[in-house]
Design a binder for these strands. Structure first.
Lengths: 213, 213, 213, 213
DNA sequence: GATGAATGAGGGTTCATTCAT
DNA sequence: TATGAATGAACCCTCATTCAT
């Protein structure tokens, strides 16, 4: 390799890194805006402002608002899938559910915009999320089978294995979605964060006790 | 009263009735649009279309989009308050929770747009809902006191009385908010309705079992 | 009819008239712009300026730029069809062609933008004109039959009856399309009009002599 | 000359050739786009796409869109001048006109974009073509003198010598400009080519017969 | 010579709202 | 009460062009 080649490829790598960094900034800004105002309610101007760039520059990096929206959804789905990679349902209901609920609630409270954007899309009827959902459906079915195994083994009482998943999902997402309501009812100041430990505890106990055979 | 007076006041009453009827149509249209696209994403044109009137006529009957939004929120809060008027917490946890969960889930599944618009506003930080929330906060506190009584009486195991309310809220709202997701995961057709009986059962059992002392 | 009814319907008629007048103004402005810059090159701002209204107002009266363009094309096709309603091919080639060429050239020179917008669309491949062309095709076929009759009767020499129509079309449109070129080559000032009489004469003679059996 | 010099100048010549080749590609792409959408309607992006290069690269090779447009016009004018270099009007009207019409129509049908771009500019009023037109005007005047000689010699009937040129121009350009219309009226498929022989024949006969003394 | 990044101006169109009758 | 007309601001996005390397 000549020195020029080295330099050039180094420059190229640098450009790619810069670009990726900016794309990440844009994605975060987009998720924040979309989670607050929805696809139609969010403006590219607001996203650009939040990302600290001009609207023109934003449009240089995305192909369209809808595309950015879809890309963000895809990102969310990927991140959630990754979040539970290490968890093993074979370890039994108690161990698994403790770990799952813990991880899920903490992640939701750390990134409430993510949960909100997702729910916002689902509330619209999920027209743009649907193409990305097949994997989730498979995962749901697989999990249902395992849960049925738990029931058969007498580890938990008989429940509908799919509705159980929805119920846990509801409990673990709720605090991120309704942060403003929870804060208001608890008389907490606006920017304050909730007591994640306590929420994890309460939800975990409710579920585990609720499933006891 | 002269005959003319009678006639005139009858006409006036008729007009008022017509007006109220139209306002109700507009409110429903507004809730449907706001629940789908949020405050910023919903257009007065779309609301007018849904209500079957012209945009100009819509604006003749409302003072502004935001005002219509607030009015709809107020309506939602009122309806929910009314929904639980007959329920008596003094009847004990089991009886009360069975009735509450049943009524709440069925109402949510019958009017999913209502739950969605509410959550949409909450996810935004509830800027316009806050002024209407004081009553709810009082109700939450009152309910917490009753729950603490249940705990003291050994009717349920010790839990945080406010988080319990949130958890129940989460479980009873979730199916209305995430209808499209639930349908997708269960492979149900698009317009289909869920099995309310089953959901009520599963949620009720989870909560009651989860609270057993 | 009550007086109020009279007044109201009079007002409505007035509004309709105003509207039609404005639509005509807009159409003329549109044809002028489209003939100069084509569909893509013309801006709604320029059309609005030419019509003496704001861009917003223009968009209140049209549904889209493309729609306005199509509407203008339709108008052109209709006007041309009407232009030759009175002419009777049964009167024989000489009489008919004299009248046709005369009317066509004068109309083209009086409304050169019309001919230009049409040719502009045809040069693009006529994607938006095509749906409006079926009638013209039928008319071309009908005319071809009559011309074949002329040939059979020995009134004109044998020619291809469709190409003859194109050739006449070419000769009668050319001066409107290429006004600027003709003016330049003849050293005429910019706004000047051509000697229609002379052009009609020269073209007529060329065609009639050219067809002599 | 040293060997290094040879090499260097060879490289330079190669570069120049490459450059000229690319410029030709760009010019063709430009003519195609300008002929379809006009100066304002054509985008440098579309031209770059058609030329198979990036927009940035295109702008590296041209100074501006308008300049490219002018350069293309100049090219067209030059090509047309060259096209008739070999033709000698002194050979008399029949021989000359047969050759001219033949060459003109075939060239137009082979390069319809060229004829279209030219007419597009003329229809706009030829603002950018005018500076390139002086030579054409001289040629027109010269040709008119020759034609007047033909008339004086009784070779053709008396006609206006300039309008005759326009009429021939009209007939020989028309089929290239209105290809889509001709195809439609003749029910020919979209990409099909016309029967050049027949068109040349028909136009030639019309003109020669039309000029017979 | 070549290329990714950037930009101010402008593209068509819709917005919530007000005006005029 | 009701409605067509009108509007300034904002919408998403593309434009021709320049910058920086």
């Amino acid at each position: 390799m000549t020195r020029a080649t080295v330099t050039r490829s180094a420059v190229r790598a640098d450009l790619a890194a810069r670009r990726e960094e900016l794309m990440e900034t844009i994605r975060q800004a987009a998720i924040a805006e979309f989670s607050t105002n929805g696809l139609h309610g969010a403006s590219t101007q607001a996203i650009a402002d939040r990302a600290g760039i001009s609207k023109t520059k934003l449009h240089y990096y995305i192909s369209s608002k809808e595309d950015l929206y879809i890309e963000a959804l895809r990102h969310i789905v990927d991140v959630w899938a990754e979040l539970f990679h290490g968890l093993d349902m074979q370890s039994g209901p108690e161990h698994f559910l403790r770990a799952y609920i813990d991880r899920k609630i903490r992640h939701a409270l750390d990134h409430p915009e993510v949960a909100r954007m997702f729910t916002s899309e689902v509330m619209r009827g999920a027209p743009l999320l649907r193409p990305l959902w097949e994997t989730s459906r498979q995962a749901t079915i697989t999990a249902a089978t395992v849960i049925e195994g738990w029931i058969a083994a007498g580890l938990i009482r008989p429940v509908d294995p799919v509705l159980l998943q929805f119920n846990i999902w509801a409990l673990t997402q709720h605090y991120a979605l309704h942060l403003s309501e929870v804060r208001f009812m608890l008389n907490l100041p606006d920017g304050s964060s909730l007591d994640a430990d306590q929420i994890v505890d309460e939800v975990t106990e409710l579920v585990l006790q609720g499933l006891r055979p």
